[in-house]
Amino acid sequence: MCLDGYTPVPPTHVAAVVTYLERRDPPAPRPAEPLPLAAIGADVARYRALYAAIGTPWLWFGRARMTDDALGTILSHPDVEALALTEDGRDIGLLELDWRQAGDAQLAYFGLVPEAVGQGRGRRLMDEALARAFARPIRRFWVHTCTFDHPGAVAFYRRSGFRPYARAIEVTPDPRLTGDLPGDAAGQIPVLTA
């Protein structure tokens, strides 16, 4: 396998560089104003609506490809916590934590709807994520992000105390061509035709 140079990607697929980050030390306790968080639980419709509102501009497809039963199984697992950040009666942020891997907590999904970005809500939501993750006895808290995500994602995670530790290339069928996402999703990533 050649690791140098360019590798062609079929026009029916997309490719992203994935960065894995981890944090092994709990944050210092901080006085925090309570966040208006609501448990999503196994409410698949609510989860899908929030996931799409946050992730469609960034080509999030992982949960979009899942059946309702598969997604409901994850969301109802006792070691998974999916929370919605709410404001004026509507969901504007997603915090999904996963403790299913022994000794680890994963920040499975984290984000804000586009109009809520850049106003300090992400920092507060991350502070909540860190507090909740390290409230259990864990070795590390980890997350992965990719080049399709918000351009400030890696820097935000690093400012939050996460350290990059691995990279991968993800190649997958373009979710706009498979029907998992609308054809106009993530306009900054062109759809190629064969």
Rank of each mutant, 00 (worst) to 15 (best):
M1Y: 05
L3P: 12
Y6L: 01
P8K: 02
T12C: 06
A16K: 04
V18C: 11
P27Y: 01
P27N: 05
A28V: 00
P29V: 00
P31L: 13
P34L: 02
L37G: 11
Y47G: 12
R48S: 01
A49R: 05
A49P: 13
A53V: 07
P57C: 02
R63N: 03
M66C: 07
M66R: 14
D69H: 03
D69F: 13
G72R: 07
H77P: 09
D79W: 10
L85D: 06
T86F: 14
D88K: 12
G89V: 15
G93K: 13
L97W: 11
R100D: 01
R100S: 08
Q101C: 08
Y109I: 12
F110N: 12
V113H: 06
A116Y: 11
A116K: 07
G120A: 12
L125I: 13
D127T: 05
A131K: 02
A133R: 10
I138K: 00
R140S: 00
F141H: 14
F141G: 05
H144Q: 11
T147D: 07
G152E: 01
V154Y: 10
A155G: 02
Y157F: 08
Y157D: 07
F162M: 07
P164D: 14
Y165T: 09
A168P: 09
P173K: 10
T178F: 05
L192C: 13
L192M: 11
A194W: 08
A194F: 10
